[in-house]
Design a protein around this nucleic acid. Sequence first.
DNA 1: TTATTTGCGGCCCTATTAGACCTCAATCTT
DNA 2: AAGATTGAGGTCTAATAGGGCCGCAAATAA
Lengths: 77, 77
Amino acid sequence: MITPADKKVLKRFGENLRKLRKEKGLSLREMSYACSIDNSKIAKIEKGMINITFTTLLQLALALEAQPASLLDYELE
Amino acid sequence: MITPADKKVLKRFGENLRKLRKEKGLSLREMSYACSIDNSKIAKIEKGMINITFTTLLQLALALEAQPASLLDYELE
DNA sequence: TTATTTGCGGCCCTATTAGACCTCAATCTT
DNA sequence: AAGATTGAGGTCTAATAGGGCCGCAAATAA
């Protein structure tokens, strides 16, 4: 379904992901290499265009060398 | 793809989800009502049979009245 | 014992994620 | 200026998540 509300949440998540990637000093292609996710897909995730699955979340965390839960920490704000 | 490794992670997540649901004293059907996810599907998630999406994770958190990140806390163990 | 609740698996169909690859404009680099 | 890097959108296919419903055996309640 992907409601407008979902779209907003995904966008928020994507922004945070992008922030974390930048902090790590990784380019999309470098991160892509680190977690085996196509760089164009990561770009889409950061743009909130994809409703990622659980395993994808874990892969992203892996590339960022972070706890999966930490990718969701922005919610606490 | 859903590798055996993924299967294990999903199973672990499901177990934790089940634990949280029990702590809340909710039956599958009650939780289903609380987050608009079919009870049989929640059962499958708890069994690690589904690689849930980000929005589904948020829905589950909603039903448990918990922070989405808290559903991943078991990883810290 | 008879009802009711509960967990859970099977189906079905549609929407969409995953995965891989290509292209291109805008930025750096050199 | 020429070349490489980077972000990001497009496309195609296969796999699967979502959504909804049915049914049943076991546990629980009446």
